[in-house]
Design a protein around this nucleic acid. Sequence first.
DNA 1: TCTACATCATCAAATTGAGTGATGGGAAGT
DNA 2: ACTTCCCATCACTCAATTTGATGATGTAGA
Lengths: 296, 296
Amino acid sequence: MTAPLDLDQLQSFCAIADCGSFTEAARRVNKTQSAVSMQIKRLEERLGYPLLTRDGRSVSLTQQGEVLYSRARKMLRVNAEIIDHFSNTDLSGSIRFGVPDDYAVRLLPVILSSFQRTHAKIAVDVACMASEQLLEGMRAGRFDLIVFTQGTNHNFGELFRTEKMHWVASHGGQALATDPMPLACGPTCCIWRQEATDVLNRTGKDYRIAYTSSNATAISSAVLSDLAVGFLPESALQPGMRVVGTEYGLPKLNDAQIALMRGSHAYGGIYDALANHIVSSMGNLDSRPTMAEAAE
Amino acid sequence: MTAPLDLDQLQSFCAIADCGSFTEAARRVNKTQSAVSMQIKRLEERLGYPLLTRDGRSVSLTQQGEVLYSRARKMLRVNAEIIDHFSNTDLSGSIRFGVPDDYAVRLLPVILSSFQRTHAKIAVDVACMASEQLLEGMRAGRFDLIVFTQGTNHNFGELFRTEKMHWVASHGGQALATDPMPLACGPTCCIWRQEATDVLNRTGKDYRIAYTSSNATAISSAVLSDLAVGFLPESALQPGMRVVGTEYGLPKLNDAQIALMRGSHAYGGIYDALANHIVSSMGNLDSRPTMAEAAE
DNA sequence: TCTACATCATCAAATTGAGTGATGGGAAGT
DNA sequence: ACTTCCCATCACTCAATTTGATGATGTAGA
């Protein structure tokens, strides 16, 4: 009969994981830096493992920390759900929300409309732009909450969804067979672009950037009209596109990592409401054993 | 930015909901009765609603209490999962476990074998008997943990699964058309039997108890060999059985409610490990909005 | 109806334990 | 080398929770 964990500690822990800093996390949870530091110390003692590695400048999760993080987030989501349910004052206010344009087009209207149905008094101002710009805007305080694609340089944020990335070409087009292969992609800052060109270089495949646009639909059009080969996350695939496997010597792409990031103040209340809604509608990382798995 | 709830309070709350008593719950969570009482008071103040109705003898959940209970349980499960994960001392010991025989036959081997794989050092002594006897055994301290069918007289326990109940007959048999209709069912104490005869009486359908056995497979055999009509939960259906809808004037049966009950001491450690395993493999009450639902 | 028993609420006192603000050490950048 | 930023630590304060005792209420049995 062991005592349950302290949600307050877990909240601080998650805040640190999200922003990579004790001091910043302290600000978010309305505590002093030393309080947060001690909370983590107690939590680590309690669980018997170091959860965070502090090497000078940056703080990151240990392996055990990762394990804890995903569970803790789950608990905090349920916690927010409860508090939301019992706060009879209808949540109201406005949220400055940012989404990557590629992703936004498909999923956003659906998600936001169902959110409006349950939280009519929350106004969501949506801005669509590339992940890089979203992160910059977040740093500058222009957003409360953003969804963005996690790249190697941005390890922080609440990861809630991964998607397979596919090479795509137009059905029956020539672009694939052309040498060097023409490529359509976002601007140089695009995270996927860096990753894709990296793997191409590594495998020695010849290519050239044939088409560049910061507008995602423009890229889709380029692919559909056989101007170039592209790469897209699964849910951005469209009819008329052909998913290319390894048959043309194209390397495997890493999964896209979709995460959530909040401003320092964007905790609790309306922010949790929207964040939880997004995670529970789009999230796909909640692996739990099912009956089928238990069966073998 | 509101402070998160106190898991300790939620644990006490759930313990009360599970056993229907403050004093007994206090024993389970290793606190004094007054401490538990105060915790609930604070929790109710915090959430702004009464959660438990205390009318003299018994304590039961209010509507808001029900809402809280399911979420709180979810959190406590994750909590136990975390603690389990971080306790590097391999869990070991033995658990006296009881299951209704009807249910046991199908699902148990699967579930227990997958449990053994992850917790090799926990010995599970399984006993199979009717829910009524399980509850009696629990009262007498002969079990640590039981799975049982919740009836109207037994409102306490951790409800984790519901199943549709069906009227069943043999394929192409005569029993259904016979008047009065021959019925196969468990002994008088059987919860389903009471319920089934109740609804039959209410609709005025003629029937007679043609076959009685406390052994579930015996009943299935009676149905399969066209001796009688029976009623079974969905997952106990077998090939050769025919599910009878309303076409023969048979009333609709209420869903079966499968719940978990623990002895006073059976919290934490190995008990949570098994309980969580059962709930996560068999549970079907974890309704959470999916992408599809969000889409409309 | 009256008594005995069990249950839950309440109270004041005591103890626990967490947060604060100041200080110190270490790493990164200039 | 010096500054700056960030995290750990410490002693102190204060708040919140547990305790144990007591009172109120309801139930069961005679």
